[in-house]
């Protein structure tokens, strides 16, 4: 999503978000992420106005004090930026890729099933299976911090079964253009 992203040409406008809309975003984020209100308050204080940065292809990035916090495509789920997920790794369900896959992910590839199902990879157990279309944090074998944030393209059980094709689509990854932007 952010493999190529230049603020000068891809951003069409900054607008402060109305407080009523902010409230609904806040409840949405709270229901979508595993985050308690107090922690969210710490990264996004109520007093600080949220700024909606409208980008090409219906991508909306939300910033507080110029720092991107989360983004959204059209009106789908909210994704935290990588810097947020580095600070609060537990807010999204985790999947793990094996070591061999890291360099491809860092080059912007989508995450294929075998990288998740092999020995170094990890998927949630059956009782915590994720459905297709869930935002996930992508972690890596032997690494502490997340390497990407993505959305599942098929259920985790289906990934284990078919073990082929795209499992998770990386929406933002380490080293993409959103990562390079510290402020927007």
């Amino acid at each position: 999503m952010f493999k190529k992203f230049t603020p000068s040409s891809d951003v069409s406008g900054h607008t402060p978000v109305k407080s009523s809309v902010q409230r609904s975003i806040r409840t949405n984020v709270l229901s979508q992420w595993k985050i308690e209100p107090e922690t969210l308050e710490a990264i996004w204080p109520k007093k600080e106005g949220l700024v909606h940065v409208k980008c090409r292809d219906h991508i909306s990035v939300y910033t507080v004090n110029g720092e991107p916090l989360f983004f959204q495509h059209f009106d789908e789920a909210f994704f935290p930026t990588l810097r947020v997920i580095h600070k609060y790794p537990y807010i999204l369900p985790a999947v793990k890729i094996d070591r061999g896959a890291i360099r491809f992910v860092l080059a912007g590839a989508q995450i294929m099933c075998p990288g998740l199902t092999s020995k170094g990879g990890e998927l949630p157990p059956e009782e915590a299976a994720l459905e297709a279309g869930t935002p996930v944090g992508v972690f890596a074998e032997g690494k502490e911090h997340a390497v990407a944030v993505g959305i599942t393209k098929m259920g985790t059980e289906a990934m284990k079964k078919t073990n082929k094709g795209v499992g998770v689509e990386a929406t933002t990854y380490l080293g993409d253009d959103l990562w390079a932007l510290e402020t927007l």
Partner: peptide, 16 residues
């Protein structure tokens, strides 16, 4: 800690 019960205070972020 998350599973047990939501902490009443904000949890400190990991420093990376």
């Amino acid at each position: 800690a998350v599973e047990a019960e939501p902490a009443p205070e904000a949890r400190p972020p990991l420093e990376v």
